[in-house]
């Protein structure tokens, strides 16, 4: 039973990984399609983040905000992530 369940999950997950690539084999890459893909590539990250910010506590939100502000000003990825996580941890420690 465990092996069947695992196989089902592996199949489902791999289909999501390869499915998008396969579908595009049959869709011509016109400029409009390219713009569509470029728009999706960026906004998909936003759509993933939103529930975290919505459901999360204020520590989570403060951390996200701190990460965004740090990245916008310094353009340094790792630094911004560290600052964000630190703000979340300190916020939770303090309140």
């Amino acid at each position: 039973m465990m092996a069947v369940g695992l196989a089902v999950m592996v199949l489902a997950t791999y289909l999501t990984r390869i499915g998008g690539v396969w579908v595009m084999h049959f869709v011509p890459l016109t400029p409009a399609v390219r713009r569509m893909l470029a728009g999706m590539a960026n906004t998909v990250l936003l759509a993933v983040v939103i529930p975290y910010a919505w459901e999360g506590d204020w520590g989570m939100r403060a951390g996200i905000l701190a990460g965004i502000v740090c990245m916008a000003t310094t353009r340094r990825t790792v630094l911004s992530m560290a600052v964000g996580v630190l703000v979340t941890a300190l916020y939770r420690l303090a309140l």
Binding site: I64, I68, R75, A89
Partner: peptide, 16 residues
């Protein structure tokens, strides 16, 4: 703050 790491990473990438 481990649970905030992934959303923070995505937000930072969104800025870039």
């Amino acid at each position: 703050g481990f649970d905030a790491l992934m959303p923070i990473f995505f937000s930072v990438m969104l800025v870039s």
